[in-house]
Design a binder for these strands. Sequence first.
DNA 1: TTGCGTGCAAAGGTTTTGCATGGCA
DNA 2: TGCCATGCAAAACCTTTGCACGCAA
Lengths: 147, 147
Amino acid sequence: MKNEYRTKARSLIIEYLKGHSGKRFTAKEIFDAVKDDENTVSRTTIYRNLERLCDQGNLVKFKEPNQDSWFYQYSDTYQHCNTHMHAQCAVCGRIFHLEDVFLDGFAKKMKLVYGFDMDPSKSLIIGQCESCRRKAGKKIRNVDVEQ
Amino acid sequence: MKNEYRTKARSLIIEYLKGHSGKRFTAKEIFDAVKDDENTVSRTTIYRNLERLCDQGNLVKFKEPNQDSWFYQYSDTYQHCNTHMHAQCAVCGRIFHLEDVFLDGFAKKMKLVYGFDMDPSKSLIIGQCESCRRKAGKKIRNVDVEQ
DNA sequence: TTGCGTGCAAAGGTTTTGCATGGCA
DNA sequence: TGCCATGCAAAACCTTTGCACGCAA
């Protein structure tokens, strides 16, 4: 078992991700965000820490259509991710954790009708969340007030 | 509107994809498959044709977890893809088209419980298909008979 | 002091672009 | 002939790796 050290770089990354929990970022965005006039965290370190956080289960790593780079999203509740399904808002990128009970009926039907054994933890529902739908209604000249 | 020419390269690519409809390939795999002793289609051409096929709606392009490159899968029925949901087998990669009626209940519940407007065409269910589950049962010393 | 973490530079791999050439209609 | 498509080489990106040095415990 490896001992884990608390370093400046790692703290900066985790702080940033935690501070924006629920939003998704590319490695590049995190690199830019963590850097300021005095300090910089190398890309290598960013990648290595992101990978570690994924392994530890605090980070979700996923792709979006037509995007070259991976997205990372911090989630305190991700520990349970191997057991349940997620929905992601196509607008703001937030990931929602769906209750298992909610899925039971669907999974059963999938099995019955298609003979398909679904793996909820790997499946992803895409759509628009409530708050983004509300915002969309308030859009002025097709420009977002905030993202 | 652009006129489309029938060229050797494009025919080779489409033929290969059609001949293996339901399977998924990376650009590299298609590059290797299309090449033989006499002919070769450049990577550039592969990518340009794959992109065009996607635009035309005959090809699905998607990522899989922890894979660097995109996967492409030919589908004659993909024309309807903007209206319905898909399930993908994690083992063989085949994509199944789910009936719309099948989803109605689920979508309604999503809206009701989470206020989430799902976009079936972009959502993906991952799991194991019937035939792969059967094969898995027949596995000998953890080696697949065929993939 | 030990060994984990970081940074640099370089490599690896996939995909895109510019430009001249080739081929379909 | 007039476009469209192809191929080559190079570039653009994102991500990973090797190695020496720095820092936490």
